[in-house]
């Protein structure tokens, strides 16, 4: 009948939340235990300088590799989301092409140290200055600002899991063939997220704050694509021969 609003019981929402949280924890690059044991050690000044003095293309290549590794975990997460693999193959690809990097940015807040404005990268905690050689300071600043702002919400793992699934199941992506089916999945995920927020006794405004993050994520990803195009215009051979094939497939 064209109505996408699903009727879902509390028990179903609990079940959905549990499955998505489990999938999130199983597919996070860094386990909770690893995070607890992390020494949160920052790069020393000479190490920062060594990253800064790398040729631009070498730093781009390193970051493309790290992003690709993180995306592979997000693909595994997507596969374990109830209903994702029931979507047609076209839509699975559309959702991951558009949403996988957004989820990497969301997951970044798990390995972000707000006090030092540093993110876990290549074995230690790195501030924005480590990425200087990339030549896109504005994008890097925005990524760090995003991580800081999302971290300030202090989302629990189950909230992060459901928010990540909500992002991946965005029904307004272009080129979806079975939009209504994606919409139903997203609405169910949103209900589960609201249910968990309520259960965790979060204040009412959190869901609205998370909705604002959706547009921030889109802006970050489109700016990443712009920066990549600009980089590729100067170094087409580096991208062609040295960038991970999955990265090129998703962002090329």
């Amino acid at each position: 009948d064209g109505d996408a609003s699903p009727t879902v019981s509390m028990a179903e929402l609990d079940h959905l939340s549990q499955i998505i949280s489990k999938s999130h924890l199983e597919t996070c690059q860094y386990l909770k235990e690893e995070l607890q044991q992390m020494s949160w050690q920052s790069f020393l000044q000479d190490e920062v300088e060594s990253y800064q003095s790398k040729p631009r293309e070498v730093m781009w290549q390193l970051c493309a590799l790290k992003i690709t590794e993180a995306i592979q975990y997000v693909v595994e997460f997507a596969k374990r989301i109830d209903g994702f693999m029931d979507l047609c193959q076209n839509d699975q690809i559309v959702l991951l092409k558009a949403g996988s990097l957004e989820v990497v940015f969301v997951r970044m807040c798990r390995v972000f140290d707000s006090q030092n404005n540093a993110v876990y990268f290549d074995g230690k905690f790195a501030g924005p200055d480590v990425f200087k050689a990339l030549g896109c300071d504005d994008l890097i600043t925005s990524v760090f600002d995003f991580a800081k702002s999302l971290s300030s919400l202090h989302l629990s793992e189950d909230e992060l899991a459901l928010f990540s699934a909500f992002i991946l199941l965005s029904a307004d992506r272009s080129w979806l063939q079975e939009k209504l089916q994606v919409e139903k999945l997203q609405q169910k995920t949103q209900l589960a997220l609201q249910h968990v927020l309520q259960k965790n006794q979060r204040e009412d405004g959190v869901m609205n704050k998370l909705r604002c993050k959706v547009s921030a994520l889109r802006s970050l990803c489109s700016r990443h694509t712009e920066k990549l195009s600009a980089f590729r215009a100067i170094y087409p051979d580096i991208v062609r021969s040295h960038f991970p094939p999955l990265y090129k497939e998703l962002f090329g």
Binding site: Q72, V75, E76, K79, R80, M85, Q89, N90, Q92, I93, V94, L96, K97, W175, P245, L246, E249, L250
Partner: peptide, 17 residues
């Protein structure tokens, strides 16, 4: 789309580990 995203398609086809 599947043709242009062979690696992603392959990752989706692989059984979850």
């Amino acid at each position: 789309l599947k043709e242009k995203h062979k690696i992603l398609h392959q990752l989706l086809q692989n059984s979850t580990s």
